[in-house]
Design a protein around this nucleic acid. Structure first.
Length: 550
RNA sequence: GGCCUGUUGGUGAAGCGGUUAACACAUCGCCCUCUCAAGGCGACAUUCACGGGUUCAAAUCCCGUACAGGUCACCA
């Protein structure tokens, strides 16, 4: 019996040969230096921040070299695959500007010349290459059941030897073709394992684009490549897919570093060119002093929907991801405040090569605050409308009832060189400006937050004198302030802060105290944006109304 | 246990043989024609986990120790 016939018995019913597949997926026609990357999720759950981070880096490098960025669905673990998994992944990742050049576009559909992009639809392809290995005596059928494997492991533990199916432990390696065929005919389940040529006492070198040179022992474990359900394992699928899809850079979490010797070995045994490996550090979190991996279960900020629900702009999330990708991004953004992520040149060497990058929500919020301050009033208004429409219906009704008024409020100290920075997320905005809307102001038990001046008569005197003698809606800002100072003089307060600081005893207080009374009487809050702008927007009638209410 | 990787201020993080050890966040001062948010200026590591070694010179190179993380599946 020839090896080819033998391979046909082990893996029957395979339509094409590996040579045919090689022809079907020729080299991509890309310019020199173009990077081909992929996002390869398993549809076993929702993607989390770590997945997004990995996808983000992959996208950025492919985009900046005019390469290809595709999405491949690693759905070989049929046990854990969830319903609508692909749809859920695509939807979760879409708000973060994840656009794929090719790959899955729904649970069943895909686009691109290098598909199928669902591993479950590539069964024949994996088998064709597995057959090649069998023919070359580089792979074999193994009948070792879970029980047998358990026994081997126990024995290895007892005698303190390395764990795994290798060397003399890999008994099925030595089965004769006849025995194998006989057992197959008897219906015994089997898998295909690689016949590893590796020597544990020799080293392989991984030249990682991020981590640099890493030396590891060669792999000598007979890794399974085709499972009993006929589907490939992760290792085999990765090697075959990334070869046929011509991925140039494998960007993945560094939990894969230790299995890279297996991959390197498979590339070599199959005669494939090895891609560049880029292992990124996992996202960690400082949990009360202890550093641990960001957890989808324990940490709300690991969930992608968290950002949408909280109203943290997804653009800001990406700016943050960019800063943890290359820490010099932040300085660059500082120098180019309106710069776009795609204009920055990322560098693998500048990526964090240590074994953890800390995912810091306060820092992200700080970036978000700066980002929001740079938006125009129309941009922030439209985004706020989108956000409230989904997450704050009441406020949505109000702001869409008064679009121009709302924009004017949002525009206070905005659209200028040093814009006001007081919101980190869209959900902060209502808390900052609710008092500007009569609908919210009038139907509420109000608590006035007076500061230094709390005497009722004094407050009454200040607001009455102000509205009767000094308020004029036509005043410009300078005039307004001079009148505030005049008001102070009349009531024995210092209009000039310097003078007050020099002789605090000469006065009852200062302009700050007086304007605080007006501010609080109008808004209940002692912390608001520019008072002049507020007065202008509220208007004479409503100012009087609010003063009367006190 | 084996094999990898890492350890720089309150926090994150640059630096990769000669620097006053960047920068950001936080904190604390001071400054600004109104509060707050900002912004400006200044303070904040005699020292880079620890112990040894190489070198004229080490946070940077080498060895050891401690601690932390990853990985050892018919899961990806």
């Amino acid at each position: 019996m020839t090896n080819k016939e033998y391979a046909d018995i082990l893996l029957p019913g395979v339509e094409h040969t590996w040579e045919e597949y090689e022809k079907m997926y020729p080299e991509r026609d890309l310019k020199e230096g173009a990077i081909v990357t992929r996002y390869a999720p398993s549809p076993t759950g929702l993607p989390h921040m770590g997945n997004l981070f990995q996808a983000f880096i992959s996208k950025v490098f492919s985009n900046q070299t005019d390469g290809v960025f595709f999405i491949r669905i690693e759905d070989t673990d049929t046990e854990r695959t969830i319903e609508d998994g692909v749809k859920k992944i695509l939807e979760a990742v879409a708000p973060f500007d994840m656009k794929f050049d090719e790959g899955a576009i729904s649970d069943t559909e895909e686009v691109g010349e290098y598909g199928p992009y669902f591993q479950t639809k590539r069964g024949d392809i994996y088998k064709a290459y597995a057959k090649k290995l069998i023919e070359e005596d580089k792979a074999y059928a193994s009948f070792a059941s879970k029980e047998v494997l358990d026994e081997i492991r126990k024995e290895q533990e007892l005698s303190k030897q390395r764990l795994g199916y290798y060397g003399r432990w890999a008994k099925d390696r030595f089965l004769s073709k006849e025995d194998v065929i006989k057992r197959i005919n008897e219906g015994e389940p089997y898998i295909i394992r690689l016949k590893s040529p590796g020597n544990f006492y020799e080293k392989v070198v991984l030249n990682d684009a991020i981590k640099g040179k890493i030396e590891m022992p060669e792999n000598d474990i007979d890794e399974v490549i085709i499972k009993s359900d006929g589907l490939p394992t992760y290792h085999f699928a990765h090697v075959i897919d990334d070869h046929l899809m011509h991925t140039t850079h494998i960007i993945r979490g560094d939990e894969y570093v230790s299995s890279t010797p297996k991959h390197l070995q498979m590339f070599e045994m199959l005669g494939f060119k090895t891609p560049k490996y880029c292992h990124i550090a996992p996202l960690n979190k400082n949990d009360n002093g202890t550093i641990r991996k960001l957890s989808k279960r324990k940490d709300p900020e690991a969930r992608l929907m968290f950002y949408i629900e909280e109203g943290i702009p997804t653009d800001a999330v990406m700016l943050y991801l960019a800063t943890i990708t290359n820490s010099n991004f932040e300085a660059w953004l500082d120098a180019n405040p309106t710069g776009k992520i795609e204009d920055f040149k990322f560098d693998f060497k500048k990526a964090n090569s240590t074994n953890g990058t800390l995912f810091d929500l306060p820092k992200l919020l700080n970036i978000s605050k700066n980002y929001l301050s740079r938006l125009t009033k129309d941009e922030i208004y439209n985004n706020l409308v989108d956000y409230t429409k989904e997450y704050d219906k009441d406020f949505y009704e109000i702001i869409t009832k008064y679009p121009e008024y709302t924009k004017d409020i949002l525009n206070i100290e905005r659209e200028q060189k040093k814009p006001r920075k007081d919101y980190s997320k869209y959900s902060d905005i209502k808390n900052g400006i609710w008092y500007m809307y009569d609908e919210l102001f009038n139907n509420k038990e109000l608590i006035y937050d007076y500061q230094s001046i709390t005497d009722k008569d004094e407050i009454r005197t200040i607001i009455n004198t102000y509205i009767d003698k000094y308020y004029d809606e036509n005043d410009d800002k300078d005039t307004w302030f001079s009148k505030m100072q005049e008001l102070c003089e009349e009531l024995s307060y210092a209009g000039n802060m310097k003078e007050y600081k020099e002789n605090p005893d000469k006065y009852k207080g200062n302009v700050a105290d007086v304007s605080t009374v007006i501010r609080v009487s109008l808004t209940t809050s002692s912390q608001t944006p520019d008072l002049y702008e507020l007065l202008r927007l509220i208007g004479k009638e409503r100012i009087k109304e609010r003063f009367n209410r006190i």
